[in-house]
């Protein structure tokens, strides 16, 4: 195996597994930059999505102010291209993680970049829950907390898994761009060691690895979404 790689993909083999430019490091960095923003951005997006649905006109906790505020924040952040967001929030990143470059520094813009996208997806998923179910729960004397957790989040769970899959995949795409601030990862490998040095074999392998990651996320997501779905559509 190692011989084959050395023979046909010499530049790939040259990068090695460990070390700053190694494949193992790049894979690890990509996973790292996907996981934590998925947690932070996901949580933030989930909270915004829920607030948008419950405070909307006619919602269970209708509130013009909070709805308007959250709606505007989400729209604003969605409007900023990610590559500009990276630069734009650099001072803020410095404040939080103490550095503006590197893999850890990328976590902040990645989280902020993915949250508005996810918030809208969550909003749409929760709005797919029939209002009649909310009404029936209210008629049973359910509290707002009951309705958020037992009706909205529970009824939309399959849809939430689906939109989370979509979000996770687009997040993997964003990690590649984070290479621009020296964040490493497979995207960086493809550009810095592949494209910039005319090592097409490196670019090819990096691409295949990213595709593989996306495929795994998609398959697991689809399987879970299907398993959790008992709606009659």
């Amino acid at each position: 195996m190692t011989e084959l790689i050395t023979k046909y993909l010499p530049n790939v083999a040259n990068l090695g597994w460990g070390g700053d430019s190694g494949w193992g490091t790049a894979i690890w960095q990509t996973l790292f930059m996907t996981f934590w923003p998925a947690v932070f951005g996901g949580l933030l997006g989930m909270i915004f999505g829920v607030i948008l649905v419950v405070t909307k006109p006619g919602g269970i906790m209708e509130n013009r102010f909070w709805f308007g505020l959250c709606d505007k924040i989400v729209s604003l952040f969605r409007a900023i291209p990610f590559i500009i967001l990276l630069a734009f929030i650099a001072p803020f990143t410095q404040l939080i993680v103490g550095t503006q470059i590197g893999t850890t520094a990328a976590l902040v813009p990645l989280s902020l970049g993915v949250f508005p996208f996810y918030a809208r997806q969550v909003q749409v998923a929760l709005e797919s829950v029939d209002n009649g179910k909310v009404e029936a729960a209210l008629a049973l004397g359910a509290t707002n907390t009951d309705i958020i957790f037992d009706v909205y989040l529970r009824e939309a769970r399959s849809e939430l898994v689906r939109v989370s899959t979509v979000t996770l995949i687009s997040l993997i795409g964003l990690t590649a761009m984070a290479g621009a601030i020296g964040a490493g990862g497979l995207g960086n490998t493809a550009i810095s060691y592949g494209y910039n040095r005319f090592n097409n074999d490196v670019t090819l392998v990096a691409t295949i690895l990213v595709l593989l990651l996306v495929l795994i996320v998609q398959l697991v997501g689809d399987w879970l979404a299907k398993r959790l779905n008992h709606q009659d559509r």
Binding site: K133, E135, A136, A139, L140, E155, L228, Q231, D232
Partner: peptide
């Protein structure tokens, strides 16, 4: 005060 509806409105999950 129990209430029932045309479209049942059960929690499908």
């Amino acid at each position: 005060i129990g209430m029932i509806f045309q479209h049942f409105n059960l929690l499908n999950e």
